[in-house]
């Protein structure tokens, strides 16, 4: 186990270094830089050159690259190019918001989709398909609704129409209820598509194990259907479900961009878009490194969870 963890950790380092390098150079291949993005309609020529020098964009690339690597190793995430704000400070504010949204979304999605999927599988097993049909139909419709559209519809109905949730406003950590009100709609929007996916995966996985011998054995022991379903069938179907939950969580950390934009949530996705639009290399590459780390960590954790779920899994 320790050996496995060490090996994984090394792999993780190589992956992250590869990503850092790739991101560093590809970002600079894109035409335009922070200076021209900043200046927009107002500047050109010499004034633009002066701005470029001031932002340190005229230094040779290898110098910039090794300087950046050195800073990273020291744990210094640097400052944004255009606004001179420490990136660590920006992340410190944005990451908790995005993480809260992602966590709440996953929890909500799991709580709805797993019982639903399990129940659907059970009904199919019993030869009653109506719940399964309804579930598949609903999942398909939900999957086809783009999040930005769902977001706007929810805003119109629950924010403007019913006045339950605000559409904008400061996220104040000292006031948890206001945070929850602000994050409720984004979490619901994001959960919807997660529910669709997770419920289908659960249904399929549970249906697979319901025909297994040990399930029949459990029944023959006289245990209640519910106990058989949730204690035996679901537990054995948990592996694929855990994989999908892990992946979904990773996707949520990167995929909340549009939802953050519409609900005016100052999360990591928002930061990333700002960085890309303003060609703030420093900000974008640092965020991508953070994303990469989070993904690698999630994969690592998923591996460990496998073992907890299925003792037969060997490292």
């Amino acid at each position: 186990m320790t050996e496995y963890a060490a090996k994984k950790f090394l792999q993780m380092l190589v992956t992250v270094l590869g990503i850092v390098t790739l991101v560093f150079f590809t970002l600079r291949l894109i035409p335009g830089d922070a200076a021209s993005a900043m200046a927009g309609d107002t500047l050109s020529g010499e004034a633009l050159e002066r701005l470029r020098e001031q932002l340190g964009l005229d230094a040779p690339l290898p110098l910039q690259y090794f300087g950046y690597l050195g800073d990273l190793l020291r744990g210094d995430l640097g400052e944004t190019i255009t606004t001179r704000i420490p990136i660590a400070e920006l992340l410190f504010r944005a990451l908790p918001i995005t993480l809260s949204i992602a966590l709440a979304t996953i929890v909500l999605a799991v709580l709805i989709s797993i019982p639903l999927g399990t129940l659907a599988a059970f009904m199919v097993h019993k030869g009653r398909r109506w719940l399964d049909n309804a579930l598949t139909g609903a999942a398909m419709v939900i999957d086809l609704m783009p999040p930005f559209w769902t977001a706007l519809v929810l805003l119109l109905v629950f924010s403007l129409g019913l006045g339950w949730f605000p559409a904008s406003g400061q996220l104040n950590w000292n006031d948890p209820s206001s945070i929850m009100l602000r994050l409720a709609l984004p979490v619901i929007v994001l959960s919807l598509s997660q529910v669709a996916t997770l419920a289908r995966i659960t249904r399929t996985a549970v249906l697979d194990v319901l025909n297994e011998d040990y399930v029949r054995t459990a029944r023959s022991l006289g245990w209640s259907e519910l106990r058989v379903l949730f204690r035996h069938a679901l537990k054995n179907a948990a592996l694929p479900i855990a994989t999908v939950v892990g992946l979904s969580f990773g996707n949520l950390l990167g995929g909340t961009v549009i939802v953050e934009f519409i609900f005016t949530i100052p999360g990591v996705g928002n930061l990333l878009i700002t960085g890309i639009n303003s060609r703030d290399y420093q900000l974008v590459q640092t965020l991508i490194v953070v994303y990469a780390l989070v993904f690698v960590l999630i994969n690592f954790t998923t591996d460990l969870v496998y073992r907890a779920l299925d003792p037969r899994v060997q490292f």
Binding site: L155, L156, S159, L160, A167, S168, I262, T264, P266
Partner: peptide, 19 residues
């Protein structure tokens, strides 16, 4: 000054009385 980038959201915020 509240940062609201999306135009539709800004309109809703005004109609809601948030701005």
């Amino acid at each position: 000054f509240n940062i609201i980038k999306d135009e539709a959201t800004a309109t809703i915020a005004l109609r809601n009385g948030e701005v």
